[in-house]
Design a binder for these strands. Structure first.
Lengths: 149, 149
DNA sequence: AAAATTCCAAGTAATTTACTAGGAATTAAA
DNA sequence: TTTAATTCCTAGTAAATTACTTGGAATTTT
């Protein structure tokens, strides 16, 4: 029941991007360096985010990525990880009932978990993390490094 | 972000056990047969539950397991899966802060998810699933098989 | 033309999961 | 007291997934 590095690194990368893209697009290499993630692996993560419409890219020299902060953490994590359901049950994704559906009671457990996770991440915006992050940084006397958990 | 078969099979097994242990201990072989899980794999799952004090065993012929229904689904799932935190961050488990703790903002996300999952499963009791299960079975005209999702 | 970048597909190494195998210990029943 | 039925324990293995790396094509600015 763990997020993979896709979700962990990917969210770190998006937050790093949001914190550094005030004026212009940010190159992946700079995010990779700050966050100690290999460029080539980050490429795969950001590709998921781009295909989901979460970040926008510009190609070529001086290119890079930008992100709109008014997006939920849930949308980011689902783009990176796939759905956040604890089991792959079609009913949790709005699909048809499984053959044991009428007697299946454990699915109430899975739905309960699923709903709580999705609610938790859908009611938190990237902009809130950005704000929190700036406050934390302002509180420290020195400029700390940028590494995020 | 998926539960493993430990959690899924294990919870099915516990519920099956609760539904069949009214008068006497239930042998693992009968649970395994009803739930189509191999006995030897089930042994490993039920060992975790026994060590966590969730089921009680009696050895020897006519032996088997019993379970007290007044236990939360959270206790069952944590016994099977380990903690249900989305990342292994010591602060989520009540341990010391990590070195990046003072600037780590993503940990708020992990804590939010962690809290919501644990709350969801800790406020649901095995007895409630048992009750629901009996109602579902009573509603069907025929006795259906016992397979759970 | 050169440099800096995103974009893409395929391969591989490491880790974790999901089991299986074999047998010892315990208890009830014949 | 033997036999059968069961839990208990350890170690091994096969399959799947994750976490990357490699190599290069396409695009854009300088």
């Amino acid at each position: 029941m763990k997020l993979s590095t896709k979700g962990r690194y990917g969210l770190r990368a998006v937050l790093d991007l949001a914190l550094h893209s005030e004026t212009e697009a940010v190159a992946l290499s700079s995010i990779a360096e700050r966050q100690s993630i290999s460029i080539s692996y980050l490429e795969q993560l950001i590709a998921k985010l781009r295909k989901a419409g979460i970040v926008e890219s510009t190609r070529g020299a001086r290119g890079g990525y930008v992100v709109d902060e008014e997006i939920s953490i849930g949308d980011i994590l689902r783009a990176l990880e796939g759905n956040l359901n604890p089991v792959d049950c079609s009913e949790l994704s709005g699909g048809p009932s499984c053959h044991a559906s009428d007697i299946c009671v454990t699915k109430y457990v899975w739905k309960r978990i699923s709903d709580s996770i999705n609610n938790a991440v859908d009611t938190l915006m990237l902009s809130e993390l950005v704000k929190e992050s700036r406050e934390v940084q302002a509180a420290g006397q020195e400029k700390k490094n940028d590494i995020l958990c």
